[in-house]
Amino acid sequence: MAFKHAVVIGASSGIGEAVARRLAAEGTRVALVARRHDALAEITIDINSGSDEDLAIFRVHDVRHTVEVPELFQDIARSLGGLDLVVYAAGMMQAVEFDEYDPAKDLAMIDVNLRGAVAWLDPAADRFARLGRGTIVGIGSVAGDRGRSGNPAYCTAKAGFHTYLESLRNRVARVGVRVVTIKPGFVDTAMTRGLDGLFWLISADRAAEIILDHARRGTTVAYVPARWRLVMLIIRSIPSFVFRRLKV
């Protein structure tokens, strides 16, 4: 199944950018949404310079401004001429000290990783359910599988996002709409750059390739790369009193 019209929220860098580039390379008309105008403009021009037809458009939007979404959502669908794939790839992970409790920092992560997702994917699910088709992809994280001591709000936001996506799927699967939860491990993006202890690092482009493959197949929950499934199975099964003593 090839997607015809897609929107990628969080498309100015990392996985979102890579997904948008790959979609356009496959001939999908794609809208790039993110906060940073210059980065978006540059990527969009770059994508469009590679083909005869202008496949990419962009819209500047901060996902924390949820009130803008309904209008922007329709504007994008109209500008693309349709919509059959929505990818929520906006994500934010702030460095948090082990003994740091900063509500402003933590709430910002919840805003970007979870509230923004709900603001975008509610109208997407509503539209797709009415039409009886469409694919929603949410970029979660392996971090959402466990409440790690390192970054409570990030883990919480991703866990909440996973649960939200599962609920959406349980609502709309019966009418033929697909909701794909992606849980990437370590991907070489600005978010992970400079972090210690990374392993199995894959490029954003490779991640995008795997993600779109899952999107086309309608996988329900996919770890990227797949080997994380086993790792997270083990990690999830560690009893809480043991997990608490581990440095993860």
Binding site: P70, E71, Q74, P123, D126, R127, R130, L131, G132
Partner: peptide, 12 residues
């Protein structure tokens, strides 16, 4: 600018 009624979306 307002939005069109989202519940009217249909395949035509």
């Amino acid at each position: 600018m307002t939005v069109l009624p989202a519940d009217r979306i249909a395949r035509v």
